[in-house]
Amino acid sequence: MTDPGHEQRTVLLERNLPYPPEKIWRALTQPHLLEEWLMKTDFRPDVGAAFSFSAEWGAVRGQVLDAEPHRSLSYTWGDDHLKSVVTWTLTETETGTYLRLEQTGFPADQPRYFMGAKAGWPRFLDKLEQVLAGEEAGQ
């Protein structure tokens, strides 16, 4: 029997974006662009590279697990109490890119992290779309 305290929850978001994968990849991996839609960071898309994201509310630490330019990016995301994995998948479509975000590893007995991610990621993705649109307009 499974211990309910060890069950894992996942946040999954999907969007069809009217931009090529290369453009979205830049927004997911370049610190100056990440800061515009997510948080301040020293991120670099090199497997094994450690990084942090910081905001007014605190900080998140991570390490790059996988980076396949223009296709997929995966990294750990957490603090002293949360050990999760964020995976971005980019699939080119006729009209742009299908973007899939999956964050796994939320313990069922820590709903605050899961609820925070469920509420936060849609807002972050909205900001990402604004950054992409601004870049498209040459801003």
Rank of each mutant, 00 (worst) to 15 (best):
P45R: 02
Y19K: 04
L12G: 01
H70K: 10
P31S: 13
E68C: 11
E68H: 05
P111K: 12
E102Y: 00
D79W: 14
E68V: 03
Y75I: 01
A117S: 13
R9F: 13
Q63L: 05
T95C: 03
R100M: 09
E14Q: 15
G78W: 06
A67D: 00
A67I: 05
T89E: 10
V64Y: 01
S54M: 09
L17E: 03
L82Q: 03
L65S: 12
Q8F: 04
T10K: 08
E7T: 15
L33P: 09
F106V: 12
E68I: 09
R9P: 00
L125P: 04
D109I: 08
T95W: 07
V131F: 13
A119D: 10
E135D: 13
P31H: 10
L125E: 02
F114P: 04
H6S: 11
R9M: 05
D109N: 07
L99I: 12
H81Y: 12
L38V: 10
P107D: 14
Y113I: 04
W57R: 11
A133H: 10
T93N: 12
P18N: 09
L101T: 07
L34V: 08
Q103Y: 04
R26S: 13
V11A: 11
A117D: 05
F53D: 04
A49G: 03
F106Q: 12
P4F: 03
P111N: 02
D66P: 00
L28P: 08
W25P: 02
R15P: 11
V60C: 08
A50Y: 07
R100V: 02
E35Y: 12
A50G: 12
V86R: 02
L65I: 04
S72Y: 06
S72M: 14
A55G: 15
T91Y: 04
E7A: 09
W77C: 02
K118S: 14
G116T: 05
I24V: 15
D46E: 15
E14M: 09
P122D: 08
L17F: 07
V131C: 08
S74N: 05
K118F: 05
E92K: 11
T2P: 15
T91H: 02
E56P: 10
T29Y: 01
N16W: 03
F53K: 05
V64D: 00
T76I: 06
G62R: 04
D126A: 13
P31W: 05
L125S: 06
E136W: 14
E68D: 11
R71Q: 10
A137N: 00
A133P: 02
Q110L: 06
A119Y: 13
L90S: 00
P31M: 14
T93Y: 07
Q30Y: 12
G5S: 13
E68Y: 06
T89N: 01
A117R: 07
W121H: 14
Y113T: 07
P18T: 12
L132E: 11
K40L: 12
M1P: 15
V47H: 08
F51T: 00
